[in-house]
Design a protein around this nucleic acid. Structure first.
Length: 506
RNA sequence: GGGGGUGUAGCUCAGUGGUAGAGCACCUGCCUUUUAAGCAGGGUGUCGAUGGUUCGAUCCCAUCCACCCUCACCA
């Protein structure tokens, strides 16, 4: 049956209720229990025949002559309810008869066990709390069309309990991180999302306009530069849960709006940060799963043993036998070409090393592994390595083949920073849309002196993917970015308008 | 951006060059401890959009749109 007809039928019921002084959208309902609490205390409540009041959405309904069985679901769980003519009387029985799957009701009654052994609420009276005009997806097969699930997440959440669970875990993960950082003495702070100048990463920003000042503004691509200002200001440990925005493509691993945590720790270096990060992940995993071993796709990820720490050059040597550390650029290119890594973009030693690493090492990183000491050419924000000028003090953590963290001993020499900004500015002028513009005030801040500092950023969405065994970022973001719907789709509001117009005419 | 796939009823899906089907949902009736309840009956659709071929297109062709997978790019 077309949606318009189904909605018309339901809308007509609302009008009939209205004629009988039954509210379709009343204001509140006093519950005594959430469903899971009632079930947890079932034996006692059933024995005493305690009157309880539950509320929820009707998910399933079966008529059995002069009685009904239905399943009602609330935020905590689901329970069967039983309603019979002899108990509730004609009016309530008729009202229940007209209810549709998806309607929200409140029920008063007592608990009992049916012949077939199901714990059930025997309804003594009920109230309609909200009439649903739109039909629910199929009661058995649910909603499987991914597009519909993303576009109408509410419907997805109503019928797919595992989706609900994934997002509860997302929330728990963030809370666990917050608790951990709090216990480590990190201060949670907030910095501007709307920025006159963007920076802290290489990405194209979203642009907007502030009319009062008549100037263009940007949505932040990273929090780095503001958080470092706070370190300069004298806080030792700060972090922020950041919504960041990057004006780039979207795919399995990218959404234009995404979440990161960035943290900065004064008087510490990247090794300190790695140890802290490792401790944090181990605790979070255990808090969420009660174990250190979790499945991800075909793999089992084990967070318990010390995470492997290996330099980028060391990992390449391990996988290929090639030691790039002492090679000139020319020799490195030849060595890379020998294993079929070539390309015009390999314009310096660091790029060659990175390319070989990406092809030969990155795909192998399933168990938690720190890759350390990246070439300076590919790490414009990190401090040079104290023992090797070709490298920087930087690590990335890889889990299940995904980058799940990026950290440096932070650059704090204002002259060095200024020079890098100049270089970026030149790239920007030459058309590199991802280069970052000069941030004068940030250089100014650095001239006041930033203590030696370790900084870490990690993507929350990807971390949640790993910890919930999801393989698309869209399955861990409630409302992922979607393109506009094409022609041929009729908005529900249009159907509803027509129904109401017809009512007024008749 | 390249390649592959999908798009048919509210949902899950069949199907055909001659104007379309099933299950669920919905409507009517029977059934007072059922449970994907059952039984009997009923209605139905811009077949993603726009063009083309054809006597005739949901089907064949072209273009476009959305979604999924994949490669590339980017982080």
């Amino acid at each position: 049956m077309p949606l318009a007809e189904l909605m018309k039928i339901r809308r007509d019921k609302v009008r009939e209720f209205s004629d009988k002084n039954v509210l379709s959208y009343p204001y509140r309902y006093e519950r005594t229990h959430l469903i899971d609490r009632a079930l947890a205390d079932f034996d006692r409540l059933a024995e005493k025949e305690t009157a309880i009041r539950l509320a929820g959405r009707i998910m399933l309904k079966r008529k059995m002559g002069k009685s009904f069985f239905a399943h009602m679901r609330d935020s905590s769980g689901q329970i069967q309810i039983y309603l019979k003519f002899d108990v509730v009387g004609q009016d309530q029985f008729d009202l229940f008869n007209t209810l549709d799957l998806g309607d929200i009701i409140g029920c008063e009654g007592s608990l009992f066990v049916t012949k077939t052994g199901e714990r059930t609420l025997r309804v003594s009276s009920f109230e309609l709390l909200t009439k649903a005009l739109h039909p629910l997806p199929d009661k058995h097969s649910g909603l499987t069309d991914k597009e519909q699930r993303y576009r109408r997440r509410y419907a997805d959440l109503i019928v797919n309990p595992e989706v609900r669970e994934t997002f509860i875990q997302r929330s728990q993960i963030i809370k666990a991180i917050r608790d951990f950082l709090d216990s480590e003495g990190f201060l949670e702070v907030e910095t501007p999302i709307l920025q006159p100048i963007y920076g802290g990463g290489n990405a194209r920003p979203f642009q907007t306009h502030y009319m009062r000042l008549d100037r263009d503004m940007y949505l932040r691509i990273a929090d780095e530069l503001y958080l470092k200002r706070l370190i300069i200001g004298g806080y030792d440990k700060v972090w922020e849960y950041c919504k960041d925005f990057r004006n780039e493509g979207m795919d399995r691993l990218h959404n234009p709006e995404f979440s990161m945590i960035e943290m900065y720790w004064a008087y510490a270096d990247y090794r300190d940060m790695a140890a802290l990060f490792e401790k944090m992940l181990r605790e979070v995993v255990h808090k969420i799963h009660g174990t250190y071993k979790i499945p991800y796709g075909d793999h089992e990820i084990d967070f318990e043993p010390p995470f492997k720490w290996i330099t980028m050059l060391g990992s390449i040597k391990e996988q290929t036998g090639i030691d790039f550390s002492e090679m000139s650029y020319e020799d490195a290119r030849k060595a890379a070409a020998d294993i079929d890594v070539e390309g015009e973009e390999l314009i310096n030693w660091g790029k060659v090393v990175e390319a070989v690493w990406e092809v030969r090492v990155e795909p192998t990183l399933i168990q938690p592994t720190f890759i350390a000491d990246f070439p300076v050419e590919i790490s414009p924000l990190a401090k040079k390595h104290r023992d090797n000028p070709r490298l920087t003090e930087r690590f990335e953590l890889f889990v299940a083949g995904l980058e799940t963290g990026n950290a440096f001993s932070e650059l704090n020499d204002p002259v060095d920073q200024l020079q890098r900004f100049m270089q970026q500015g030149k790239a920007l002028a030459e058309g590199d849309k991802e280069a970052q513009p000069l941030d004068d005030d940030f250089v100014t801040a650095l001239t006041y002196g930033m203590p030696p500092t370790a900084g870490l950023g990690f993507g929350i969405d990807r971390l949640v993917m790993i910890l919930t065994n999801q393989h698309s970022i869209r399955d861990v973001i409630f409302f992922p970015q979607m393109k506009e719907l094409g022609d041929g789709s009729v908005p529900v509001s249009q159907i509803l308008s027509k129904i109401v117009d017809d009512e007024e005419k008749s």
